[in-house]
């Protein structure tokens, strides 16, 4: 992890004015994607994963504020410098393949429009390249696929289309937002295998959002765990999964070692973005919380092996009942 990162999110905060008050969706989030690596972001639903990707892609909702932080892509701050906008250089695989393509336009035309704006060459080049990409993502009958409408594909095929779209402008980085959540289990496995193969073949950098530890273990070199808009801990995937240090991660893995990230069964709920607790955001639910945990957000503690954990008590044992 010593290469200069392709993508670096540095102390990023994203707030959103809502009717219920200011939603502090992300606070002080940092992560890095080195070239050719796959980095996972995990966290429960609502912890800010999609917002993080939207910040990177420059499509935050109206009313979003960025009170602090930077997003550097290929060394340039794409938040501060609009001209450095990474459109076309960052491919995007969305969460829901059923809803992400416009039903009234041919799927191929929708991808060709992206290429028209961001890829060099003529329309004829683009078509040829797209057919090639359709083959690479194993869409049946690649030539005919160009002329079909989205509803004429199955869910898995649509996700393949969207993966082809993400690759269509030769991006350096691909970000994917839970790309298999909307699919059935068999299709999930196929799509993951496809992504892993493509990432290896094309030496892609991948930022992969998931709430599934199984997916994480199968695909990602490194992981960042989010809780309520803050980084709980980060490090190489194997190390984090084998020996989690943050109480949140430890409880999660104790509950569901290879399943969905979900703290059901542990007292309390994830706080709303408009009502984040002071101090460590996990402290109201944490079995080893001390009074001081409510005072200030704990700074990340660096651990050996390129790891970091945002908990000063990471070395303490959790009480037995919490792990039962």
């Amino acid at each position: 992890m010593s290469d200069r990162p392709l993508l670096a999110v540095e102390n990023l905060s994203v707030h959103l004015r809502t009717e219920a008050g200011l939603a502090r969706i992300l606070d002080d989030v940092s992560l890095a994607v080195p070239p050719g690596r796959t980095v996972g972001v995990v966290g429960e639903s609502g912890c800010g994963k999609t917002t993080l990707l939207r910040a990177i892609l420059g499509i935050l909702p109206r009313g979003a504020l960025i009170p602090g932080g930077a997003i550097r892509f290929e060394g340039r701050d794409i938040l501060a410098d609009r001209a450095a906008s990474a459109r076309g250089r960052i491919g995007f695989v969305p969460q829901d393949p059923y809803l992400s393509l416009n039903p009234v336009f041919r799927a191929g035309d929708q991808i060709l429009e992206i290429m028209r704006r961001h890829a060099p060459g003529t329309r004829r080049d683009h078509r040829a390249k797209l057919v090639e990409l359709f083959r690479a993502v194993q869409l049946p009958d690649a030539e005919a696929a160009l002329r079909k409408y989205p509803h004429q594909f199955s869910g898995g095929q649509r996700q393949r289309l969207l993966i082809a779209a993400a690759l269509s402008c030769d991006p350096a980085l691909v970000v994917a937002d839970e790309p298999t959540t909307a699919l059935d289990v068999t299709t999930q496995r196929e799509i993951l295998a496809l992504l892993r193969r493509l990432a290896a073949e094309r030496n892609l950098s991948l930022l992969f959002v998931t709430h599934d530890f199984g997916v994480l273990a199968a695909l990602c070199d490194a992981v960042t765990v989010l809780y309520a808009g803050r980084v709980a801990e980060a490090g190489p995937t194997r190390a984090v999964l084998d020996d989690p240090r943050h109480p949140y991660t430890r409880l999660l893995l104790a509950c569901h070692p290879d399943r969905a990230v979900d703290l059901a069964g542990i007292p309390g709920t994830v706080p709303a973005a408009t009502a984040q607790p002071a101090g460590c955001r996990f402290h109201p639910r944490c079995p080893i919380a001390r009074p001081a945990c409510a005072d200030a957000p704990p700074p990340p503690v660096a651990l050996p092996g390129g790891r970091a954990v945002a908990c000063p008590h990471h070395a303490d044992a959790l009480p037995e009942p919490a792990l039962a």
């Binding site: 499509i59 995007f92 429009e113 704006r117 961001h118």
Partner: peptide
């Protein structure tokens, strides 16, 4: 409000095309 508009924005569609062609065609159904 649709996901495909967000997706198209993420993929870098131009503003004019997004509003005048992409979205309008859905709306006029």
């Amino acid at each position: 409000q649709k996901d495909y508009v967000l997706y198209a924005r993420a993929a870098g569609y131009g503003r004019v095309r997004l509003a005048a062609i992409y979205v309008l065609r859905n709306a006029v159904t």
